[in-house]
Amino acid sequence: MSRSPVSPQPYWNPYLVGALLGLVLLASYLVAGRGLGATGAFSSLAAWIADGVSPAQAAANPVHARYLASGSPLTAWLIFLLIGAFAGAALSGWLAGRTRLMIEKGPHISGGTRIATAVAGGAIAGVGAKIAMGCTSGQALTGGAILNAGSLAFMGSVFAAAYAVAWLLKKEWL
């Protein structure tokens, strides 16, 4: 008997998953009157940390203050959305045999380098999402579906920068 590990199942057809994701987005609009999002949860978490460090300074900071205005930032809608997203992704990955502790990286960089690029990229994306007042979920998907012109400009801008930078970063991924 072969002792090779169980190979993970293939991903679903992208157009099929896209339609499924679109229906989830539509359901969000129908139930909550708003679409999906992610960045706001990070903003709430950041405000909660700032409030823990110094309540007075957090309240005086105009960015944190927005997320402290209506009760504990940990009860924000998007925090619950991301808790659900974690559970949904965990179930999907586990059912498909894709869950394991590993580092996703290109073949020519070390694990340590990859962790560093992930932290740096995350920080840059965080700043970008704050400037754009949303990310690929809250702006591109959610705004795109309702034909929000700013969201469509954001999406074009994201892909323009990403394609340009990807050209310089072939070493990281290829």
């Binding site: 992610a38 960045t39 949860a41 990070f42 996703e104 690029t117 992930a118 932290v119 740096a120 990229g121 995350g122 920080a123 840059i124 994306a125 965080g126 700043v127 970008g128 999402a129 704050k130 400037i131 754009a132 007042m133 990310c135 690929t136 979920s137 400009a153 954001f154 999406m155 074009g156 801008s157 994201v158 892909f159 323009a160 920068a161 990403a162 930078v165 990807a166 970063l169 990281e172 991924w173």
Partner: peptide, 16 residues
């Protein structure tokens, strides 16, 4: 914001 976000996306490999 889109330009900064796109840069972070490709360096970091994910979006939020």
């Amino acid at each position: 914001g889109g330009l900064v976000f796109g840069t972070g996306f490709v360096i970091g490999g994910y979006c939020p």
